[in-house]
Design a protein around this nucleic acid. Structure first.
Lengths: 211, 211
DNA sequence: CTAATATTTTTCCAAATGGTCAAAAATTAT
DNA sequence: ATAATTTTTGACCATTTGGAAAAATATTAG
């Protein structure tokens, strides 16, 4: 079994080990940020030795880089799915639903992203200025069109998108605070159901036209 | 000039130096989180030597602790001001305005708080479960009352508060992303004005009763 | 001015950290 | 089984880090 220099793993075992390491790295990075995380923590979390980690990833940076890259695809997908030809209210509701599901099912990825942005987005600033901006420009145009057609109440499409990002990701990034404030077990258990209902109402009632 | 052991500075000079250090610490902590920040960075930022910092603050922890403590007072104030006897829509609008102003004027504090929460709120979990929860419970009751009286459209008051937190703090915590997406200088310059307008519309239209 | 006190800096240290290397262990190929 | 190859680890290293100690400097009181 040769190992072709770097990158792309060949054997199934290599693929698996890399995944185990990435999983551990995600756990640690999402909690402590890049600088605040140590290889020892990641090794402990992965259940293997530190040099073994460096056998699969050349450096701490490289692990982080791969995590961020994998994240970004998943992160942009929900907005990409928003369809100009669909019903405006239904499309926006569906977008909110998708984003909220991501906050529920991938909270660590959300926090990893949050951490990256807090630090000034050093690794993804180009992507934000490029791919992300292009995508948002496109969808903002779609939304603006819906508004022009009188199918949505007029508001700033960019800031509307920001509001959706903010409200949905909040349930991943500020989970500790949310659970602390809700206090009671029942409310905590239902927090995502309640959130969905509330966000639908918030956005739909404010965007619905006429009455 | 005696220095009474620890804590509370006596002379004006001590008070000033402590402030300079705190200011530098805020700058660094808010960007890198607690673990990701170093005393050297803070010293550099403050323009004094590392041991001199430790002359005024016994440890890195202590600096962070004081920052967090000072932050929390400021952080709770806007919600405390919400007045049960005022007009519901006006009160909520004013709350949004205050929170948005904090995001604009104190973005580093917002990020410091964000960082703390991301890491699981190790230093303020008691405060979240105590003081914060009590305050939110009280204000949620006020909002629920307004809704019961038919002065606001019914929705979950806790999640309504979460939405306000999320949307306003987003403008501090995700500023890099927002500026990247907005791209154009004019839109960036007006982002807080636009945000205010948009958030008023979002929340007011969705909470206004009747039509 | 002089002594006492407060402040600052230079020097240093032990622990933690990212990473290397060679040897050991496990796996695979023949 | 044996040789070749891959995987894993223990020992090590240079740098960074939080912090201590003490000497040097500045400030204040008398």
């Amino acid at each position: 079994m040769k190992k072709t220099d770097n990158k792309t793993p060949i054997t199934r075992i290599q693929k698996q080990k890399r995944l185990v390491i990435l999983e551990a790295a995600l756990e640690v990075f999402s909690k402590n940020g890049f600088r605040g995380s140590t290889l020892d923590q990641i090794a402990l979390q992965a259940g293997i030795s530190k040099p073994n980690i460096l056998y699969y990833y050349a450096s701490k940076q490289e692990m982080h880089k791969e995590l961020i890259e994998r994240l970004m695809d998943k992160w942009l997908a929900p907005l990409e799915e928003m369809n100009a030809k669909g019903d405006p209210i239904a499309e926006i509701s569906a977008y909110i639903k998708r984003k909220l599901e991501m906050a529920r099912d991938y909270p660590r990825q959300s926090r990893l992203f949050n951490n990256e942005i807090l630090q000034g987005a050093p690794h993804i600033i180009d992507l934000l200025n490029g791919e992300l901006k292009v995508l948002v420009d496109e969808k903002a145009k779609v939304i603006a069109n819906w508004m022009k057609q009188g199918r949505l109440t007029k508001t700033d499409p960019y800031h509307l998108i920001f509001s959706i990002w903010a409200t949905t990701q909040h349930y991943a990034d500020f989970d500790v605070q949310i659970c602390a404030v809700l206090g009671n077990d029942e409310a905590i258990k239902n927090r995502f159901r309640k959130a969905e209902k509330h966000l639908y109402q918030l956005f739909v009632r404010s965007l619905e036209v006429g009455q």
